[in-house]
Write a protein that binds this DNA or RNA. Structure first.
Length: 438
RNA sequence: GGAGGCGUCGCCUAGUCCGGUCUAUGGCGCCGCACUGCUAAUGCGGUUUGGGUCUUAACACCCAUCGGGGGUUCAAAUCCCCCCGCCUCCGCCA
């Protein structure tokens, strides 16, 4: 959620953000109403409760005196107690109803708060999915025509290398599931190790996280809003399968107050990721570009709000370093306001060149979620005498299937083998290429 | 899955049986001040978190907060119910 004082002092800022996202603007006014109603109701309850406590405190001592009192005083004390009891009893009813009202008003306000997305960064390009801005093109796509052969797509390559099996994936688990096999499985381990080695060298703490989380973690990271339809839910246990280890990493410090001295805290999480891919029927049905389950190394950072923007730049740089090491051509885009998701105020994607598609496809994504998640998850930092929310950021270091797609397609050779980039060779026993099985 | 025990404001801890004097005790840690060649020690004061009064800061005050939720009561850390977590033992298990 965003800073409530902004709603009270500068609601136009929220309206403008909603407008740029293409989201409901009128909700801001409903929230203003609900917010002030909530505070009024709470104040009424507080006042009544204060009266009740004041009154209640008189009864105890009086009853004590009553016990010790002699016959003469007893009657008058008793009537005093009775009178107080009658008053207190009436007040108790009022308190009860005021409490119920305040709670109801609070629930309504909370519900609306959850629907407001993070304030967009004013530098984000305005528009929908297609209105991204290309910031940079890196590397040169290969000219397969001049090399004299037609590139195969990653699935053809993966099958001839006996590295990817989507047919049996579908047989066993349904469409959009796959097996990595043999050199394919080893490739994933190599990528994992390269990614972790890089992350650790930059001070990230490696983490293997739960892939199933409570509703609070999902809600707190902003995945139960518009993104909810893509989240797997285990109904019987009221748990969720995570779509990214961003969720368990963010929630790791929920309800905690961090020392400002220890910031930034950088974590590199490894987990399986699960996505329903609802609404993408017919899209990317071939191969492993869009699947229900995959593994990913995710970077996640807790830092001060002031340092967040610079950290965002570093996350992007580390993502670039990784793709550079794999020698894959790519471009960097500044994602448009309508495509940010509810948590991000700004988002940069790296899209790798996919030769058989003749286009760039998303392989990483880094978001500055400012204080949006930390407010929901109650992650604060001690800042002198005060505490205030931290900023959180996330970025993909290595999403396995898409990196494997880019790697296979870009480094394929005319004989059907695939060149292994130098940086990866050490993690594959010094091998320099993957070769088709006989 | 079964039996038993436990959950208190950073950590440890008193309080829960028998409801009001709990504005939650004490210790450790931490912060400030004083004292002292320095450090240490000592003394004094402060130190849960959230919301509000309040346009900002300080101060003050009010409300909530004793794992979470509900209930009983004029009044709940304390009594009742449900849930969650931790520990010990048993069963099962990679």
């Amino acid at each position: 959620m965003i800073d409530p004082t902004i709603l009270r002092t500068d609601p136009d800022r929220i309206r403008e953000s909603q407008r740029r996202r293409g989201e409901d603007v009128a909700i801001v006014d409903r929230l203003i109403t609900a917010d002030s109603a909530q505070r009024t109701a709470q104040q009424r309850f507080d006042d009544l409760r204060n009266k009740q406590k004041t009154l209640g405190k008189q009864i105890g001592p009086l009853q004590g005196a009553l016990k010790k009192a002699d016959e003469g005083q007893r009657a008058s004390l008793q009537s005093e107690v009775d009178a107080l009891m009658v008053q207190a009893s009436a007040l108790a009813d009022e308190v009860k109803s005021a409490d119920a009202e305040a709670n109801a008003a609070g629930l309504l306000a909370d519900e609306l708060w959850l629907q407001i997305s993070n304030l967009v960064n004013l530098d984000s390009p305005v528009g929908g999915e297609a209105d991204f801005k290309v910031l940079e093109l890196v590397g040169q796509p290969r000219d397969f025509a001049s090399e004299g052969f037609e590139p195969k797509d990653h699935l053809d390559l993966g099958e001839s290398l006996d590295a990817i099996d989507t047919v049996r994936g579908a047989k066993v688990a349904g469409s959009r599931f796959f097996y990595l096999k043999g050199q394919g499985a080893l490739l994933e381990f190599a990528l994992l190790n390269l990614a972790m080695q890089q992350a650790v060298s930059h001070g990230f703490i490696p983490m293997i996280t739960p892939a199933i989380v409570l509703p609070e973690a999902m809600e707190g990271t902003g995945f139960l809003g518009q993104a909810a339809e893509n989240v797997y839910r285990l109904e019987q246990d009221d748990l969720y399968l995570v779509g990214t280890s961003e969720v368990p990493l963010a929630a790791y410090h929920a309800d905690e107050i961090l020392d400002q001295d220890q910031l930034p805290l950088r974590y590199a999480g490894w987990s399986s990721c699960f996505r329903r891919e609802a609404g993408s029927y017919g899209k990317d049905t071939r191969g492993i570009i869009r699947v229900h389950q995959f593994d990913k190394v995710e970077m996640f950072v807790f830092t001060t709000p002031e340092a967040a923007e610079a950290e965002h730049g570093r996350l992007l740089q580390w993502e670039r370093d990784f793709i550079d090491a794999l020698e894959i051509p790519y471009r960097i885009i500044d994602v448009a306001t309508g495509d940010l998701g509810s948590s991000a105020s700004r988002k940069f994607d790296i899209e790798a060149w996919i030769p058989t598609q003749g286009t760039y496809r998303e392989v990483t994504s880094t978001s500055n979620t400012t204080e949006f998640q930390s407010r929901r998850l109650k992650i604060r930092m001690r800042d002198g005498k005060h505490q205030r929310p931290v900023a959180t950021l996330n970025g993909t270091l290595c999403a396995m299937p898409r990196i494997i797609v880019a790697l296979l397609e870009n480094h394929q050779q005319v004989d059907g083998s695939v060149r292994i980039p130098q940086a990866l060779q050490a993690f594959l026993g010094g091998k320099t290429s993957f070769t088709p099985s006989a």
